[in-house]
Nucleic acid binder design. Structure first.
Length: 904
RNA sequence: GGGCGCGUAGCUCAGCGGCAGAGCGCCUGCCUUACAAGCAGGAUGUCACUGGUUCGAACCCAGUCGUGCCCACCA
């Protein structure tokens, strides 16, 4: 673990627990470089100038939790703001994708809480049916056992044990990240309450005829031995063979192409397109099927594409979804030739062969039959694999439970269409509609043991009874009743998450207060299966959308924009970065990359940059404390304040307004950018430097500057807190003696603006930058004090002589001005005494370059202003801007020519 | 096969009609009393290409090329 001493390059940090308040008192004597400080072992000179996140983060987090800040009160009068966490799998651990979304959710709830909302962020986990069951089965396998050895009840017991022992590692990691979740409301999808919710909605759907049982072709994993849904299938390009087989005898033959020769044993027809002239004569005839003693009919079906292959297709209703449909249309029998493990069941020489062995064996056997194999060529095509274990999925005819989605999906689509739920960014809505408008019925039964068991009982006479949550089974096993052995798809229970976690089906205060929730934050990759299901179930049972808006995030990628994956070896554990640079640094980096709906690249260098930002804030606050900045009492009258004070307060309020705007649009990258640049460029680089003259002067001037600086930091720390809660909390409580930023008020735009001050300071900035450039090019060292004579009368700089001298390290003018360079700045002059050291050539070069640029600008702006089309059509503001630019260019040219002339 | 997006500095990306930007990286000089995890200064672009609309295009339109993702019952 990289502690503060490692991160600080080994500089001594004597007392790591020293807080900034102590610092404020003792840092007067702090030497910047302790190694030069001489032998004062116990002197305050060794105190840290570097922020050490590891020391404060855990302590602060536990304090927040202990004080119950994150616990929401449903009886509160405050307006509600609620987010339910997308429940991570119980088997999972925190990856950067979580860290990313959690940062956004945390920032949203923290800001709302500060704004006075009753804010709830509800945590929990998903039981993750297949994933968890696989995990425990693996564990058993290591002991040489299978789940069948244990039996169902003992196995489920074992899974619960596993959950207690290993599950939920992610919850601890969330604390490390700083997630302000309400731990008193933590939920698990297999909780008793949530199970009741599952049973309740199942029964309701069943009674409404929206759940039914049917035998159909489903995706089957021959390894997991369960049905899986379409979304649990991952398609990969596999190379196989396309084999053309000649069916029939004599004149009546037809060639069909297949990648799955082994299923020919289950063929019950050949299909051709009804309009295909090549085969019209065969329609309705029987053809001899090779290797068997069966003959099968040729049927005409419009599904067949005459352009593909030979235009004729073998039909295996029991082993292919399309063929199943064709079979239904033509009333063909289904002949199952593969069992649940993908092994041939058809009697004959192939019985007992695995499907892949059988494929080769059958092609081999057919080759032995003369002209049956008409052609064989390599063929790359897309094949479904089980997303859990990568086994090739087998389409299988079986009896499963289904949800009839059409009416539910209609309602889910309408909710977005009529604006009850808004999708951010709006472009993403089309993906949502694509999904809900084209949804197939959903297979919800799984042949697993870990999950919510289907609440249907079968009686001795084959009758089925769906049992509600508070009902007894219709009969005992002794009487011949037994419960359906299957469990429900994991997504069935997570689809209920936004209201089941709040207590539904009971009418709880939580449900009344916090449903519908405010926003769902999730990746665009799961908009399809999860979001749509919550929308369906929410509108179905609650008659109200589950969330007012959906904020879609992108995926986290590495620093080159590449997907993080184990095979690339570019996966980063966010915990490592949090240890090394602090949670704030990771959070700030992630938030800074969060443009709505687009992917987020992240690299260690960027986290370091964020760490540097936190450190910068730390040191700026140290400066403020050392100079007696205050945060209480009214701000000084505008008349008492310097232009710099008025400028920074004006900017501060603009920043407050801008931050709010970006929060409303989920523009985290923009608000991070605004705050970063305001803090660093404006407050730290300019305001703090400008305020030094006032602090140096002391008295009332220092008091005023201290109050303004205190105000700026106070507000700034509040604005930054939702994104970087730790460093802001540590500094703010010290600076203000306040209880906690978690429960502090969110800043409001006071409306204070001072355009004149903003203009004045911009002028100072321009002038100072220009002289600095001159100094740099003259080879003057930044700290080197230079005697200078300032003539600023009648210019915007009049009031800022002291500041200009301070910023430029100019000494009061002395006598012997020997070789003097003159720099007219905005009509003012600054004469530096360079004691004959001026580099005339360097200066001439610089001025010539600037002159060329100014002349180009003049030419361009003049051309523009001479353009009648432009004058007629451009908005007045734009024209005005161009005029100002031309005027500036003109004055620059005069000035530069004058300066060049002086150089001789 | 269908749909959506993206090509802007060395890298990763903002900007989406009115002076081409940021972070990181790079060059020069600095321990300037808050901060060397820092400070000051500097360099860097056919805004993928070709046409069009417009007084004005990185931005709007059409096409081309490149690239990524999603969907689909590609035998």
């Amino acid at each position: 673990m990289a502690g503060p001493s490692a991160a600080s390059g080994g500089k001594p940090i004597r007392d790591r627990d020293i807080g900034a308040r102590t610092l404020a008192v003792v840092t007067e004597n702090t030497q910047r470089h302790p190694e030069h400080a001489g032998p004062h072992p116990a002197s305050p000179a060794d105190l840290p100038t570097q922020y050490a996140p590891a020391e404060v983060e855990e302590k602060l987090y536990e304090g927040w939790v202990a004080r119950g800040y994150f616990e929401a009160d449903p009886k509160s009068e405050r307006p509600p703001y609620a987010i339910v966490i997308p429940p991570p799998n119980v088997t999972g651990s925190l990856h950067l994708g979580h860290a990313f979304q959690h940062t956004l959710m945390d920032a949203l709830t923290r800001r709302r809480r500060m704004q006075g909302y009753e804010a709830l962020w509800l945590p929990g986990m998903d039981h993750a049916g297949i994933a968890t069951q696989n995990k425990v089965e693996q564990q058993l396998a290591e002991e040489g056992k299978s789940r069948q050895d244990l039996g169902r009840e003992a196995f489920v017991e074992r899974v619960w044990q596993w959950k207690e022992e290993y599950g939920g590692r992610i919850l601890g990691q969330m604390r490390r990240l700083g997630d302000g979740v309400d731990w008193s409301r933590e939920r698990f999808t297999m909780d008793r309450g949530l199970s009741r919710a599952v049973q309740t909605i199942f029964k309701r759907l069943y009674d409404d005829g929206l759940i039914y049982r049917a035998e159909r072709i489903i995706n089957w994993c021959p390894r997991c031995l369960t049905a899986i849904s379409d979304i649990e299938v991952e398609y990969q390009e596999d190379s196989g063979e396309l084999v053309s087989l000649r069916y029939g005898e004599g004149e009546e033959t037809v060639v069909v192409a297949t990648t799955r020769a082994e299923t020919m044993l289950g063929d019950t027809a050949v299909a051709v397109h009804p309009d295909d002239a090549r085969y019209r004569h065969l329609i309705g005839r029987q053809i001899k099927l090779p290797l068997t003693d069966r003959s099968i009919p040729v049927v005409a079906d419009p599904h067949v594409d005459p352009e593909f292959g030979t235009g004729a297709v073998k039909v295996t209703p029991a082993h292919d979804p399309n063929d199943f449909e064709i079979g239904r249309r033509h009333d063909l029998p289904s002949l199952t030739v593969l069992d649940e493990r993908g092994v041939i069941t058809a009697h004959g020489p192939f019985e007992g062969l695995d499907r892949f062995e059988a494929r080769a064996a059958i092609v081999h056997a057919l080759r032995g039959q003369g002209r049956v194999v008409a052609e064989k060529r390599p063929y790359v095509h897309s094949v479904g694999h089980c997303s859990r274990c990568d086994t090739t999925v087998e389409p299988r005819l079986s009896m499963q439970w289904w949800v009839k989605v059409a009416p539910l999906a209609q309602a889910a689509g309408d909710a977005v269409r009529d604006g009850r739920t808004a999708i951010h960014p709006p472009e993403m809505a089309s993906r949502y509609f694509d999904w809900v408008d084209n949804m197939h019925d959903w297979t919800i039964s799984r042949q697993l043991w870990w999950g919510h068991r289907i609440p249907v009982w079968y009686g001795p006479d084959g009758e089925a009874v769906c049992v509600g949550p508070d009902e007894e089974p219709p009969g005992t096993e002794a009487e011949g009743w037994r419960q359906d052995p299957d469990v429900l798809d994991t997504w069935f229970s997570s689809g209920l998450w936004p209201f089941s976690t709040l207590g539904w089906p009971d009418e709880t205060p939580d449900l009344a207060k916090f449903y519908p929730t405010s926003v769902l934050v999730t990746g665009y990759d799961i908009i399809f299966f999860w979001v749509a299901r919550m929308m369906m179930f929410g509108t179905y049972v609650m008659d109200e959308v589950p969330f007012r808006s959906i904020a879609l995030t992108g995926l986290v990628r590495d620093e080159h924009g590449k997907k993080m994956s184990k095979s690339f070896g570019n996966v980063v554990d966010p915990l490592d970065w949090m240890e090394a640079y602090g949670s704030d640094a990771v959070r700030f980096t992630l938030a800074g990359g969060a443009n709505p709906g687009t992917d987020v690249p992240i690299g260690e260098d960027w986290v370091k940059a964020s760490r540097n930002f936190a450190n910068k804030i730390w040191n700026a606050t140290r400066f403020a404390l050392m100079n007696g900045a205050t945060v209480t009492g009214p701000l000084p009258d505008a008349a008492e304040m310097s232009a710099a004070d008025r400028w920074i307060l004006s900017r501060l309020n603009e920043v407050v307004a801008e931050t709010d705007r970006h929060y409303e649009d989920y523009q985290f990258a923009r608000l991070s950018d605004v705050l970063y640049h305001f803090a660093w460029d404006e407050v730290f680089d300019w305001y703090v430097e400008l305020s030094k003259t006032a602090f140096a002067r002391g008295g009332r001037a220092a008091e005023v500057a201290g109050r303004v600086l205190g105000e700026v930091l106070d507000v700034m720390l509040r604005l930054l807190h939702p994104v970087i809660p730790f460093v802001t909390e540590e500094l703010w409580t010290t600076l203000t003696d306040g209880e906690s930023l978690v429960v502090a008020a969110w800043p409001a735009d006071s409306g204070f603006r001072d355009a004149a001050a903003e203009g004045e300071i911009r002028t100072v900035q321009r002038a100072v930058t220009e002289v600095r450039r001159f100094r740099a090019e003259q080879g003057l060292q930044p700290g080197q004090k230079v005697p200078a004579r300032l003539a600023l009368a009648g210019t915007p700089l009049t009031a800022h002589e002291e500041a200009v001298r301070q910023l430029l390290r100019l000494q009061p003018e002395g006598d012997g001005f020997q070789a003097t360079a003159t720099l007219p700045v905005e009509g003012a002059t600054v004469e530096l005494d360079l004691s004959g050291a001026i580099d005339v050539e360097a200066e001439r070069k610089r001025l010539t370059k600037d002159l060329a640029a100014a002349e180009k600008e003049l030419k361009q702006t003049t051309a523009k202003l001479g353009n009648e089309g432009f004058l007629g059509k451009a908005p007045e503001q734009v024209v005005e801007k161009i005029r100002a630019r031309r005027a500036a260019a003109e004055s620059d040219i005069t000035r530069l020519k004058d300066q060049l002339a002086r150089l001789g």
